[in-house]
Simulated scan of single mutants.
Amino acid sequence: MDTTTYRAYTNIALIKYWGKRNKELFLPVTSSLSLTLNEFYTETTLEWNTQSNEDTFTLDGQILDINAIEKVSRFINMFRDLSGIHRPVHVKSTNHVPTAAGLASSASAFAALASACNDLFGTNLSNKELSTYARRGSGSATRSLFGGFTVWHKGIGDESDSSYAEMIDEADWDIGMLVVMINKEQKKISSRVGMEHTIKTSPFYKLWPETVAEDLEAIIPAIENRDFPTIGQIAEHNAMKMHATIIAADPSMTYWEPESLTAMNIVRDLREAGIPCYFTMDAGPNVKVLCRLSQAEEIKKAFEKHFSSDRLVISGPGKGPHKIS
């Protein structure tokens, strides 16, 4: 085999990952839980590079600079070392999700790349094992190795293999999201920088691991029981606690924009009108509305009074990465 192509989907965390305890191994401070979405994905082709002795990387049709290539090469080196095949490759990746805008583009990107590497280098890792490798490219990529509701276990100490992901529910029921595109541009403060600043300076951060553990313990049985209101309430509160911790950093910072607040208020108004829906936000201004998929069109119409329809995307649950050629 000389080439392989995989598609992987992004995921949106309902119980957030915010902070690493080991930067080199990408080991998180807390466990986390997400829902994979079928409308946002990355397609990555990996092939042996017969034109150069070095790795090359094309993203969305653009040849990337040396810094980006070095990061990708370090990631691929794990599979070269595991397989014993030390050959240069060409990576061609296309993001069907805005890059670095708080929509987890890195999750789908490194999940697709990990899957393609596993195939091309013949390493035959299980999804559980592969999730420990995908984590080294992007923490949230660990969860994009699976569909539905997925838990990323924080693991024990510095034991890399103990921090892995697993799907706990296929989400093959009436649940989905409306994604509100507040700003598709690359965010000014990266997640990595934001995490480090929050850990170092926010007085609230010491409480973060404890509250995440409580939220995770409560949301898993709610998912098992398909108790949508409880799932939504926990997810929304968890997101607000994360952002409160970020805002409390010194100097203070926020990923919110004015329209982010508008979107939150629309969700609250819809709930008061009897339509159950809940918002969550990651490290970016875009708002994701967790809802019953059967009510997503009705919710979208309410948002269209304030946002143009091209900024609103309804998504159902997604699946894990799969080979497309």
Rank of each mutant, 00 (worst) to 15 (best):
Ala8Thr: 12
Tyr9Arg: 06
Thr10His: 01
Thr10Trp: 00
Asn11Arg: 09
Ile12Gly: 04
Ala13Tyr: 10
Ile15Ser: 01
Lys16Phe: 03
Lys16Ser: 04
Lys16His: 02
Tyr17His: 11
Lys20Cys: 09
Lys20Pro: 10
Lys20Tyr: 07
Arg21Trp: 12
Asn22Ser: 10
Lys23Arg: 11
Lys23Trp: 00
Glu24Asp: 14
Phe26Asn: 13
Val29Ile: 15
Ser31Leu: 06
Ser31Trp: 11
Ser31Asp: 10
Ser31Glu: 05
Ser31Lys: 04
Ser32Gln: 14
Leu33Ala: 07
Leu33Arg: 08
Leu33Lys: 12
Ser34Asp: 05
Ser34Val: 06
Thr36Pro: 01
Leu37Ala: 13
Asn38Glu: 12
Asn38Met: 00
Glu39Tyr: 01
Phe40Cys: 13
Tyr41Ser: 15
Tyr41Trp: 11
Thr42Tyr: 00
Thr42Asn: 02
Glu43Val: 13
Thr44His: 05
Thr45Trp: 02
Thr45Arg: 11
Thr45Gly: 03
Leu46Cys: 12
Trp48Glu: 11
Trp48Arg: 05
Asn49His: 11
Gln51Arg: 14
Gln51Pro: 00
Gln51Glu: 13
Ser52Arg: 12
Ser52Cys: 09
Glu54Thr: 14
Asp55Leu: 15
Thr56Met: 13
Phe57Asn: 06
Phe57Arg: 01
Phe57Val: 15
Leu59Trp: 08
Leu59Ile: 14
Asp60Lys: 14
Gly61Lys: 02
Gln62Phe: 11
Gln62Val: 15
Ile63Pro: 03
Ile63Gln: 14
Leu64Cys: 13
Leu64Asp: 03
Leu64Lys: 13
Leu64Ser: 09
Leu64Pro: 00
Asp65Gln: 06
Asp65Val: 00
Ile66Glu: 15
Asn67Met: 02
Ala68Lys: 15
Ala68Gln: 15
Ala68Leu: 10
Ala68Met: 11
Ile69His: 05
Lys71His: 08
Lys71Arg: 14
Val72His: 01
Ser73Asp: 11
Arg74Thr: 11
Arg74Ser: 14
Phe75Ile: 10
Phe75Trp: 10
Phe75Met: 08
Ile76Thr: 12
Asn77Phe: 06
Met78Lys: 12
Phe79Glu: 06
Arg80His: 03
Asp81Asn: 15
Asp81Thr: 13
Ser83Glu: 10
Gly84Leu: 12
His86Tyr: 08
Arg87Pro: 00
Val89Ser: 01
His90Pro: 00
Val91Met: 06
Ser93Gly: 09
Thr94Ser: 03
Thr94Glu: 11
Thr94Ala: 04
Asn95Met: 07
Asn95Pro: 14
Val97His: 05
Pro98Asn: 04
Ala100Arg: 08
Ala100Met: 09
Gly102His: 04
Gly102Lys: 04
Leu103Trp: 02
Ser105Ile: 07
Ser105Glu: 06
Ser105Met: 06
Ser106Asn: 10
Ser106Gln: 11
Ser106Glu: 10
Ala107Glu: 01
Ser108Gly: 07
Phe110Pro: 05
Phe110His: 07
Ala111Cys: 10
Ala111Gln: 09
Ala112Tyr: 00
Leu113Met: 07
Ala114Ser: 13
Ala114Glu: 04
Cys117Lys: 06
Cys117Val: 02
Cys117His: 00
Leu120Phe: 07
Gly122Asp: 09
Gly122Tyr: 12
Gly122Pro: 08
Thr123Met: 10
Thr123Leu: 10
Asn127Ile: 04
Lys128Gln: 12
Glu129Asn: 11
Leu130Met: 04
Ser131Phe: 04
Ser131Asp: 07
Thr132Gly: 02
Tyr133Ser: 01
Tyr133Arg: 13
Ala134Trp: 05
Arg135His: 07
Arg135Thr: 09
